[in-house]
Nucleic acid binder design. Sequence first.
DNA 1: TGTGAAAATGTAAACGTTTACATAGCCCTG
DNA 2: CAGGGCTATGTAAACGTTTACATTTTCACA
Lengths: 344, 344
Amino acid sequence: MVTIRDVARTAGVSIATASRAINDSPLVAGETRARVQDVAARLCYSPHGAARSLSTSRTHTIGILLPDLYGEFFSELIRGIDQTAQGEGFHCLLASARHTGPLLEGALRSMRGRVDGLILMSPEFTGELSRRTLPEGFPVILVHCPPTEQHKDGVLVANDQGARAMVRHLAGLGHRRIAIIRGAEGNYDATERLRGYREALAECGLVAEPALEAPGDFSEESGAGAVRELLALPPPEQPTAIFAANDCMAIGALSALREAGLRVPEDMGLGGFDDIPMARYMTPPLTSVHVDISALGARAAARLLDLLQGRAGPAPYRETFPTTLVVRQSCGANLLTTPRRVAV
Amino acid sequence: MVTIRDVARTAGVSIATASRAINDSPLVAGETRARVQDVAARLCYSPHGAARSLSTSRTHTIGILLPDLYGEFFSELIRGIDQTAQGEGFHCLLASARHTGPLLEGALRSMRGRVDGLILMSPEFTGELSRRTLPEGFPVILVHCPPTEQHKDGVLVANDQGARAMVRHLAGLGHRRIAIIRGAEGNYDATERLRGYREALAECGLVAEPALEAPGDFSEESGAGAVRELLALPPPEQPTAIFAANDCMAIGALSALREAGLRVPEDMGLGGFDDIPMARYMTPPLTSVHVDISALGARAAARLLDLLQGRAGPAPYRETFPTTLVVRQSCGANLLTTPRRVAV
DNA sequence: TGTGAAAATGTAAACGTTTACATAGCCCTG
DNA sequence: CAGGGCTATGTAAACGTTTACATTTTCACA
C-alpha cells in the first residue's frame, strides 16, 4: 500500500510538505504542490481514512442507527440522508439495532471513533443510555424520538395532523362510523396516528368506539385480518369507512374487502397513510396521507452537518414535517357510482 | 473522552495489559482481566474505532457501493448485507455513486482505510479502474457485474432464466403474441430479461417482433406509456399478453390497460418481474418472477466475510441466484371467466 | 534451594496522518 | 549590511490502539 511517505520520498519533500500539498494548504509553494499532487496521482495514492481520523479526530462520517431496515420508510430515509451527506463529502455508516437494550448499547458504543455525529431513530434511546454510551456533547439528531436530557435536536412527522386530516375528510364525506386499523403496539407513528384519529372524531362530534379500533402491525396481513374482524361485527356496528394507519395495511384491507364482496369505495371508504408510490396504482387508487420521507432524512442530515461544520449554534432544533392529504378514489370522493351505505 | 490510558491508570496496570484484558486475551490473569473490565465499564470506556483500525489494519467494516439508493431492490439488498454483517460484528459503510466516472473513482478512493472489503454494484466498474483505486488483492464481491481481471467473485440473479420461465408460461397459456416492456437502456437486468424473453420466444417457435418490444425505464409511468404505445398498433398486431421487465412497470401497465377499458387477464395477460410484496395485493394479483434480493445480499456478504476471516480460499466464487415463477391471476392462469382474445 | 520453564506484566515501536513549532532562505527597509 | 519580517520547508509530537519483545514473577521440580 502506498502511503504519504512514499509520495513524499518520490517527490523529494518532507512528509509534512506532502501532507500540506495534498490538502491544498496555502502554506506550500504552488510549484511544489503541483509536483506532489502529480506524484500522488501517479502512485495512485489515497489517504488512509483511519489514520486521518485519528489525527484530526474527525471521521467525515455520519452514523445512522435505525430500529430496522425493512420497508420503504427506511430506504427513503437513508436515501435522503445519504444524498445530503454525500453533497458535503460525508459518508454514512449504517447500523440497525433490531433488538433492544444491550444490542442498542453495543451499536452505539461501536460508533465511537467511527462517526462524527448520529442520526438516531429508536424508541429505546434514553438520556441515561446516552450518558453511558456517547461522549458528552456528541451531536445527535433524533428521528421520531422524544428529546432526551442531552439531545434536543430532532425531526418528526406530523402524524397526528395527517391522521386528523384524513378522518375529517372521511367525516366530511358523510361517514359517521369510521374505523381505524392501528399500527404496531408501542410504535411512535402508530400512537400519534391513533391520537389524531381520536381527536378528529371528537372535533367532528363523533364518539370513539373501542370496537372500531382494530389492532394491526403495519403489515398487509394484519390489514386484511383487521378488516375481517370489523366485518364480523353485527351490521349496525360495522364501519362505513376505514382509516388504515399505513398504506400496506390499507392494501391488505382492500384485498380482504374485495374477498368479502364489498366494493370500495361504494360499500366501504378507505384511506391509508404514507402515500407510497404504489398507492396511486391500486384499484381504486388509494387516498392517503403523503409524507416526504426522503426530505425528512435530508433535513436531519442537513441539521447534523450544520452542527458538525460549526454552522449552527447549539440551540435546540425541532422540526415537525407537515403531511398532505392526497385524495384519490378509495375514500369515495370523486365518486362516479352511487354509494350504497353512506348517508351524505 | 476516556481512553485506554485512563482505564489502565485507574486499574493500576500498563496500557498493554489493559488492552489485553479488554480484548479477552489469554495472556492476562483472570483476576486482572476482571478488574480492568470492571474499571472500563465504570468509566464507560469504549475503544476508539479509528485508532484500532490504524493499529490492526482491520476496520471491521464492509463497504457497500451502489449506483443509487432508490427502490425496493436496494433496500432489500442492504438489509440482507447488513443482517449478515452484523451477525459477525461488522459494520456497513454505504455509498452511492449516482453519476459515473470520476465520482465512482472518488467513492472508491475514499473507502481506503475505512473498509476491509467491498460489495460493489456498478456497471462502470472495470479492471482498469480497480487498479487505480483499490489496493492489490482487495476483496470485492460484485453484484450484477461482469467479472474483471482482478475480481472474479460475484453474485447475480438468473434474470434470463426468470424471463424465460415467464414467457414460456404465457406461451403455454396459448398466447402467440407476447410483448415485453423493456427495462432501462443499458441496465444489466434489463438486458438479461430481454435476452430471456427472446430466447423463450425462439424456444416456443414464436418470432420476435421489434414492435412488441416496447421501451421502458422501470418506472410506473413508463409501464403505462408502453401500454399506450402497444395499444396504438393496428389490432391484428397487438399483443395478447405483456411481460413487464419489472413489477413497477407492470403496475403502471395495469392501470393503463384499465383506463383503455381492457380487462386483465381476460383481454390481456400480464406478468411482472421481482415479485415485490405489493404484487399479490394488486387487482388482479400479479403473476411475477420472484427474486429473493435480501438473500442475494446476504450471500454476497457471507462470501465477503469468508474472505475477510480467512475462511475461504481465493478461488473465484460466482453464484447465480435462481428465480421462481409465482403464478397468480394477471397472466390468465387460474382464470374463472372466459378470455376474449386468446385462443387456447 | 537453585534452576528453568511458564505465566503475567511492562516497554516501546508501529500504524498513517496532521500540525505546532523550529528553521532556513529571501527580500525589504533603514 | 544588519535586522526583521515573510514564505517555504522540515522535525517531531500527537492521535489511541495493538503487539513484538523484554522483563519480572510464579511455581514445579530436581
